[in-house]
Amino acid sequence: MSAGAVAGAIAGATAGAAAAAAGARVKAEATTAKREAVLRVYRGDASGGQEVEYQVPVETGMVVLDAIHWIQAHQAPDLAVRWNCKAAKCGSCSAEVNGKPALMCKSRMERFAPGEPIVVRPMKTFPIIRDLVTDVSWNFEVNQRIPPFQPRAGAEWKWQQHDVDRAQEFRKCIECFLCQDVCHVLRSHELKHQFAGPRFLVRIAGLEMHPIDGVDRTPFLKDSAGIGFCNITKCCTEVCPEDIHITDNAIIPLKERVVDRFYDPVQMVWRAITGK
């Protein structure tokens, strides 16, 4: 691994020098002047690794994913990166850019100060496979365990737009797992065996607030999804590329539903009396 990394670094340096010479000849255009960016990309696998530096020519409107592709095509053909649509619609290219969980296709190069090295690392919550790719299959395991949609018996398939506005927000989720990545319960405390994480609380919220879903997932929320582990510090909401208000609109309303069932003494007494 390290030999490859060093070779990559050397290739990076030479190509960078050549590109810099070419850059000097480019006349200043009306748009952003041609410049070079320094990317420090994590190269490595489960056995270890380090950041390798690459010089990348910057074009107008370029995003970090473009820079990674440029490195792949010119300097490191085996640089592993997961991506699909490049339009912030599929949620594949999740990584940590300068320490912040982000979609690489939405991280514009112009946002970084010239000369400032851009550090690109894989997500830290999941085991690394190689370079920028992590093993996110845990998430798919969790999803499989959520009680699926089941319509209420005899429900009429008619409802108003305002009945589904809430759930439609949750269904915007592109499953980039950045919220899972930033969530300290999963990231720092490694409670993946007890806590489903923000993505799946959003998913459960979408099911629970479906106007004709008939499944009661409140006990699941409390005991299996571990909603109590969330201390609503809102990092998930901060990183969501789809601007879903994960904490305020999904998790807190679900916490309130769990309270209704398991913590509200008056409601518990009421249910005991009425038998409902």
Binding site: K124, I128, E141, Q150, R187, H193
Partner: peptide
Amino acid sequence: PSYRPATCTPPGAWRGAGYG
């Protein structure tokens, strides 16, 4: 619907670089 744990993996099986 059955109320199994959200995951069936043992603690620490999915550790990433952020742990600890």
